[in-house]
Amino acid sequence: MSQPAFAETSSVPIQFVSRSRQRAEAPPALTTVCSSCHLKDLCLPCGMSAPTVERLDGLHFGRRRVKAGQPLYRAGESFQAIYAVRSGTFKSTLGATDGREQVTGFAMAGELMGLDGLAQGRHPSTAVALEDAEICAIPYDHLMELSADSGELQRAVGRLMSREIVREHSLMMLLGSMNAEERLAAFLLNVSQRMKARGWSATEFHLRMSRAEIGSYLGMKLETVSRTFSAFVQQRLLEVDKRHIRILDLEALTRTFEGRLQ
C-alpha cells in the first residue's frame, strides 16, 4: 500500500522551548503544561503527586503538529526525546529487508512513543501520523536531569519502559498463539478499552488505520482481515461501515478473544 508523499517527506526537527521563553513569547500553541493538560491521567504524569507534576512544567519541550502521512521520526534518526500524543493517531513501523513495511503498533492521544530509541541512541522504527495530529516532545536528557532527585519521577519513567515490554509481549501472544478471529477480536477490544479510558464510546468508533495496516500489525493477509470482519458482521458481533465500527455484542466478542487464553 502506497503512502502519499511519504518517500519525499522528511521528519521535521523539533525545537525545544523552555518554559521561561514560553512565558516571554506566549505563543498560543505552547500554552499547555503537564499540570493542566486534560490527558495527564493517561500520559507521563499518570499516578504522580501534584508537586511532582508541577516540576514537569519546568521541562524544556517541543510541540508540533504533524499532518496525516507525515513522519514524526524515521528509523535511524538520533534519539533525543520521547513523544506524547496530544491528538490524533500514529503507527509505528519497521522496514523489512525485502522493502516491506511491518506495523508494530498504534499510538493514540495520551500515549507515548519513541522509547525504542533509548537502547541504541537511534530510533529503530518510523512513526507516521494516520491523521492530522499534535505531539509534545519531552527531551530525554532533561527528563533524566529532573528525575535525578525525584524517586517518584524515576518510578514513572520505569513504568513507561515496563509498558513497552508488556506491549511487546502482548504482540508476541497475538502472533504466536491465536487464530484470525481471536487476533482481530483482541485488537478491537484493545481499541475499545483505550477509547473508554479517554471518555469516548467503547462500542462505536472510527478506525484511523487501514485494513492492510491492521493486517500487518496482526500478521494477517488483507483478505483474511476483510473476511474476518465479514464473519463478525454475520455473527452479529459488529456493524461495519468502511472504517466505522459499532460493537453490537461486547461480551460475545470478548469470549471470542478469551477462548484461546482459557
Score class of each variant (00 low, 15 high):
Arg183Asp: 00
Leu184Met: 03
Leu184Gly: 10
Ala185Asp: 01
Phe187Val: 05
Leu189Ile: 10
Asn190Ile: 01
Val191Gln: 10
Gln193Gly: 11
Arg194Gly: 02
Arg194Ala: 09
Met195Trp: 03
Met195Leu: 00
Lys196Val: 03
Lys196Ile: 01
Ala197Pro: 02
Arg198Leu: 02
Gly199Ser: 01
Trp200Ile: 00
Ser201Trp: 00
Thr203Ser: 08
Glu204Phe: 00
Glu204Thr: 09
Phe205Gly: 01
His206Val: 13
His206Arg: 13
His206Gln: 09
His206Phe: 14
Leu207Phe: 03
Met209Ala: 04
Met209Gln: 12
Ser210Phe: 00
Ala212Asp: 13
Ile214Gly: 06
Gly215Val: 05
Leu218Tyr: 10
Lys221Cys: 01
Glu223Met: 08
Thr224Cys: 11
Val225Ile: 08
Ser226Met: 13
Arg227Pro: 02
Thr228Met: 11
Thr228Ala: 09
Phe229Asn: 03
Phe229Pro: 01
Ser230Val: 02
Ala231Thr: 08
Phe232Lys: 12
Phe232Thr: 07
Gln235Asp: 15
Leu238Thr: 08
Leu238Gln: 10
Leu238Lys: 11
Glu239Ala: 14
Glu239Phe: 11
Val240Gly: 06
Val240Lys: 06
Asp241Gly: 10
Lys242Trp: 07
Arg243Cys: 05
His244Leu: 12
His244Cys: 12
Asp249Pro: 07
Asp249Ile: 07
Asp249Leu: 06
Glu251Ala: 15
Glu251Asp: 15
Leu253Gly: 07
Leu253Lys: 09
Leu253Met: 01
Phe257Val: 08
Glu258Asp: 10
Glu258Ser: 13
